[in-house]
């Protein structure tokens, strides 16, 4: 009986303490940053607006492998592969429906060529929803983004214009299929 009453008093006391402690927050400074009057510092790895980058040679990095599209949890990336006359793959169109995008960054993680990257720009609101559908020409930048030195085709085995078979990094020249020599 007394134990039960004691417990109840303890509970009520805890509530009163809570009320008092919360009340004291009236005299604390608010944590709110008053954006847009005050611009916040954006960290370089912030997951904001998506860009397509170019490799150090200035060519499109995207090889239209579709991995970003399949990694996308909201399926907001659609693209079509095409290739140039020398067999280099690139996207014929590359479309992101930003009205669906949740900025999760899975596409960036999935990208094997560092082509798709998220940037610290988050101010992407539009008045018309249709304007949130972005095509490749809206997203392609003239730079390497966060990763400066990577060039996928330098390490891939596929021959493209300017790089024949056996000319990639760590490759032997093509074998002579007519030779039986060891």
């Amino acid at each position: 009986m007394f134990k039960a009453i004691g417990k109840q008093i303890k509970i009520i006391w805890s509530q009163i303490v809570t009320l008092w402690l919360v009340f004291l927050h009236l005299f604390k400074k608010a944590d709110t940053v008053e954006y847009p009057d005050v611009q916040p510092y954006m960290f370089p790895r912030w997951r904001g607006r998506i860009v397509l980058t170019r490799d150090p040679d200035g060519e499109e990095r995207c090889v239209a492998c579709n991995l970003c599209a399949v990694a996308c949890p909201v399926d907001c990336i659609a693209l079509q592969k095409t290739e140039d006359e020398n067999g280099r793959w690139y996207p014929e169109f590359f479309r992101i429906n930003f009205s669906r995008c949740i900025m999760c960054g899975f596409c960036e993680e999935a990208c094997p060529t560092h082509a798709i990257q998220l940037t610290p720009d988050f101010e992407m609101a539009e008045y018309v929803r249709q304007d949130m559908v972005w095509e490749k020409e809206h997203m392609l930048i003239n730079g390497t983004g966060k990763y400066h030195d990577y060039n996928f085709y330098r390490v891939a085995g596929k021959a493209i214009g300017g790089k024949g078979k056996g000319e990639a990094r760590n490759e032997l020249p093509p074998v002579d299929r007519r030779s039986l020599l060891p």
Binding site: A69, C72, D75, C76, I77, A78, R95, N97, V133
Partner: peptide
Amino acid sequence: HRYSGRTAMRANINVH
């Protein structure tokens, strides 16, 4: 079940 791009493939025609 991994079909991708459902919300973007027709978005150039109409985002709805």
